[in-house]
Design a protein around this nucleic acid. Structure first.
Ligand code: SF4
Ligand code: SF4
Lengths: 161, 161
DNA sequence: TTAAATACGTCTATTTTAGTCGTAGATAGA
DNA sequence: TCTATCTACGACTAAAATAGACGTATTTAA
């Protein structure tokens, strides 16, 4: 459950790879597929997305490739996901302005407010986490959780049978 | 993206419904399907899961039904999801003890550590959020985000084209 | 004895995600 | 100018996860 999207992983792989390079040096998609075994077309598409959003600069033609142009400290993980997957919608009844794609239960639903709460807080969480923070690995713990021992009780449980 | 699981929604619907009742009064699945239009079999299964985990008490036979037995303040949203969906695995390479279901990229992957970081922090987030807190709607904001204006910059963007 | 409920294994349909194919366009260098 | 090598992108197919249905057994109050 709650699996991270594969495209987003490829984005992280690419960004991590490019970060370790001297400034100005380009990276081709082929290079990424050879190093990490990620599928060419998909990775290519992801890089194109990031280029469109201004995170990368693309250079076409022979000896072309991609290059990071934006400070990864200024890009939240939320942004990264949104660039690749579009805006986050935690449930069917959100962002569905009109009738289209709305939830068939919505009229009688008693948890719209809770779900909106969840959506808000989850977005907050993702926006608060920068891509640089993630890639640099200094994400041990928020330290915020010293008070949560009250909740930990029921946490050990197996898969539903 | 990041859509909440439907079964979990049905669980919340059921719990919210039962919370509004006088103690001792039972709730049938049929009652839930009539009130909220959620599918009978699925909702039934979800309630069975919650009963097995001790959140609900089930009474069989005619005039049977379900009843909340555990303090929802002591159940994290993480727990609720885990009861219904099993343990959270943010990526293929996690919790896959042996060769089975492991990521085909794992040997060369350069982002295992970042992904583990994400996993840890996300679990922390979900464990820190109680079901009661969610259902009662007092989940405005964590107030923790006053420092995140630096990140908000790139947040307005449309779907990938 | 019966009606109404939970319990649960298995199956099918739908939706989402992952990955491929084919082609067009840019550019450095021979 | 021609070619190798790259990005750009629309459309398509395959695989996996999610959502839901069916069938049947068991429990229990009336
Ligand atoms: S169930 Fe309620 S909350 Fe979930 S999508 Fe439908 S309406 Fe929104
Ligand atoms: S890509 Fe890297 S992080 Fe993601 S699953 Fe495979 S190994 Fe784990």
């Amino acid at each position: 459950m709650n699996k991270i999207n594969r495209k987003v992983e490829y984005a992280l792989i690419g960004l991590k790879h490019m970060r370790g390079k001297p400034p100005g040096e380009l990276t081709t998609v082929k290079e990424l597929t050879l190093h990490y075994g990620c599928p060419f077309e998909m990775t290519s598409r992801v890089m194109q997305n990031l280029a469109q959003k201004g995170v990368l600069r693309s250079e076409q033609g022979a000896y072309g490739g991609y290059q990071i142009t934006k400070d990864l400290n200024r890009i939240s993980f939320y942004d990264l996901m949104a660039m690749i997957l579009g805006p986050m919608a935690v449930a069917k009844c959100m962002h569905s302005s009109e009738l289209e794609s709305a939830c068939e239960i919505r009229e009688t639903c008693n948890i719209v407010s809770p779900v909106q709460t969840l959506s808000r807080r989850l977005a907050e969480f993702y926006r608060d986490l920068t891509v640089a923070e993630l890639l640099d690995g200094r994400g041990g713990s928020t330290g915020k959780n010293l008070k949560s021992s009250v909740v930990a009780e029921a946490s050990m449980m197996a898969e539903p049978t």
